[in-house]
């Protein structure tokens, strides 16, 4: 009977097979993709040389991130942001600890905020490190900052090694520095290239 109702072969079956194959490929494609957010965080600066920070210095002494042999924590913040207020004491503690040891320092970059508010923020909450203005948002743009607070850990080699979103603690920063130091030591050591300890 099919040769009567379907004089030109079996178009529905052919179409179903073609559509089925294409749709199966689509399902496979969707099933094998990572979540977009993961792709986003891995696609950023990690492993890349740190971009420069060219804004005007609002507080503290001038600082060139390309010419230092210390670990640098680049912190993006705004005085109106609540989690920034929460994380600030942690940064103060971290900064104090490492000013003594001399192996790491903090710099902050303002994100969409008023210079006066920023000065008041540091006046009330402490912190004596360098604060750059936002350079019309260019610095945040170069670093790919989406929301504050966001902090980046830059190794003494000038490479960005870690990104912290929505707040960071002294302990987290120290742990990251220690982990990378150990990994670097292991790599420098004779044969243990696989000891990316963490």
């Amino acid at each position: 009977m099919s040769d009567v109702t379907a004089p030109r072969g079996r178009p529905a079956r052919t179409a179903a097979i073609v559509a089925g194959v294409i749709l199966a490929l689509l399902v496979v494609l969707l099933a094998t993709r990572d979540p977009a957010t993961e792709r986003r965080s891995t696609s950023r600066l990690i492993g890349q040389p740190a971009p420069g920070i060219e804004g005007e210095v609002l507080l503290g002494e001038p600082f060139d991130i390309g010419a230092t042999d210390r670990w640098v924590v680049v912190n993006f913040f705004a005085s109106w942001c609540v989690p920034c207020k929460v994380e600030h004491p942690e940064l103060v503690k971290f900064s104090q600890e490492h000013t003594e040891t001399g192996d790491a320092r903090v710099v902050s970059v303002v994100y969409s905020d008023d210079a006066d508010d920023v000065r008041r923020f540091f006046g009330e909450r402490g912190g004596d490190w360098t604060v750059f203005d936002s350079d019309q948002g260019r610095t945040a743009l170069d670093w790919g900052v989406a929301k504050v607070p966001e902090s980046y850990l830059v190794a003494p080699t000038g490479v960005v090694v870690e990104r912290f979103v929505s707040g960071v603690t002294q302990a987290q920063l120290n742990a990251a520095i220690e982990a990378y130091t150990r990994a670097a030591a292991a790599q420098a050591g004779v044969s243990e290239t696989s000891g990316a300890g963490s």
């Binding site: 994100y111 969409s112 936002s134 019309q136 948002g137 260019r138 945040a140 743009l141 790919g144 900052v145 989406a146």
Partner: peptide
Amino acid sequence: DTPAAEAVRVL
């Protein structure tokens, strides 16, 4: 209206 977008606008 994120600052990053503002920066691209300026650029």
